[in-house]
């Protein structure tokens, strides 16, 4: 796993209180990991802080899975 992927995973485990094994590439924040609308906003903010990037709202809407988050961040770095 890439460095980015493992850091993303750690944030998700911490913020959503889920088991590490559940945080797979295709897992959806809302459908699989129990996130609600506030949780997803918080996740995006944590990604911005951790990776020192800006994720505009219209881009954030397209980040719904673990894999999409990792790809977006890899592209933004």
């Amino acid at each position: 796993m890439s460095d980015i992927a493992s850091r993303v995973k750690a944030i998700i485990v911490d913020k959503l209180g889920v088991d590490e094994n559940e945080v797979v590439t295709e897992a959806s924040f809302t459908n699989d990991l129990g996130a609600d609308s506030l949780d997803t906003v918080e996740l995006i903010m944590e990604f911005e802080k951790e990776f020192d990037i800006q994720i505009p709202d219209d881009q954030a809407e397209n980040i719904a899975t673990v894999g999409q988050a990792v790809s977006y961040i890899e592209g933004a770095k």
Partner: peptide, 9 residues
Amino acid sequence: PRFNPFFIP
């Protein structure tokens, strides 16, 4: 402004 979405609630 980077307020946490849980701030108000």
